[in-house]
Amino acid sequence: MSTSVPETGATAAQSAERRAVRTRWLLVSPAVVIIGCVGILPLSIILLYSLLEPAEYAGVVWTFSPEAWMGLVLERDIFDDTLGLSSAHLTIYTRSILQALFTTVLTLIFGFPTAYFIATRPAKERNIWLFLVTIPFWTNLLIRTFAIMLIVRDEGLVNHALINIGLIEKPLAILYTDVAVAIGLVYAYLPFMVLPLYASMEKLDFRLVEAGYDLYANRRRVLRRVIVPLVKPGVIAGCILVFIPSIGAYVTPRLLGGGKNMMLGNLIANQFGTSRNWPLGSAMALALMGLVMIALVIYVRNVTAAGQKSHG
């Protein structure tokens, strides 16, 4: 060390910094490469596919065509080849959006009181509740949907009970209707609403609630004017977490809706299956993604706005 040129502090700092940067990039690169190649690159491939023509048996023909994007809402008349609105597609879109909105609202109505109740339990009890809500969150959606199927079928528990007590004679046809899908979606995504709501309610400072009561607000007004505004980020997060998967739902409508009550997810999957129209399926998938991105942007905006308000 005495013979070599002594490294000054500054250059030692620089080389340490360089080493740190190199290690850092080495460490993130596998994740970034895997997701980049198999998660993100395919999105640009379907963007490309959406601008091509469908091949006869699956796949694409490499000629440009705007047909797929037009096909989102339009369809060609089989006889005279004129363009008209595709009522079949529009029905499915409307159904998907309505179902997703309905699911979001209903899970919020049930989820908000539940999350609040959990957040106000004593610590031990709270952990049990949390555990009980987390289990369905992580258990297989397919199996939970199957369980609903068992209950709403013609020979299912609900009909069985109703006939037994003499309320109805013939079983109600619930399975393979929009109602069944709605029940299934609400059931499936309820935990997705409760958990983020809980996360923000857990942080709720109850001194603020006390201050509300102290200033003559009654329970309802404390809820509306103090609690709801404070947990707004959680409400928005919960709504997003329910809305996004329910608008693109595939399993629930497939099992509970049958062929007649398809949603967007099934329609897209069909283009890659029986309908053999990959470009149209790609365009629809991208449109769905666009919708989701808009929802996410609204979320981010709202959350940052809420954050600024609480700081300002």
Partner: peptide, 11 residues
């Protein structure tokens, strides 16, 4: 959304 990932990966 899962369905988008699914069809993109398939393609």
């Amino acid at each position: 959304p899962e369905i988008v990932t699914a069809v993109a990966t398939l393609s």
